[in-house]
Amino acid sequence: MTLSRKATVILIFTVALLSTALAHAQDKVTRGQYLVTTSGCHDCHTPWVMGPKGPHPDMTRALSGHPADFALPPAPQASGPWIVSASATNTAWSGPWGVSFTANLTPDPETGLGKWTLKNFKDTIRTGRHMGRGREILPPMPIPMYKNFNDADLEAIFAYLQSVPPLRNRVPEPLPPSSTSAAK
């Protein structure tokens, strides 16, 4: 085999390997998109707006969490069996735990998951703590169910979340239960 033939074979082999790796990565992102769109992530992490047919997720702000510029008055007092209320955006939730604001899941480095590692993400979902080490993740995030995702699913979800357009949106910190709330 001449030198140029050898070089050609190596080139074809390398391209084939790269293509396989790329296809695999793309498969993972596609699988992640499927899981994100079927597991209800947009229900709370994409702000909802009112349309002619009722509220629907505003996909121009997909997965960017509770809008920082959406000023909210104090949540209504819980009454009887009605213990939870949600904002019109579906991104702020008041209940016995206080008020939770859904996180920015886009890869914005300062306000989203841009600097997160896969391990940070997996630890968060598995432990129900911020980055696996910080404060508890609050309702309505369904940690008790999502912690059962297997490793491959969580890797796919994270790969997809890292692939969506980064949106800058600094979500406020949660509020503790007020002294007059039903949480007492």
């Binding site: 206080g98 080490r133 404060r135 910190e173 949660p174 503790p176």
Partner: peptide, 10 residues
Amino acid sequence: RDPLTRMPPL
């Protein structure tokens, strides 16, 4: 004293 804010968190 707020468990969602304090450090260490647990």
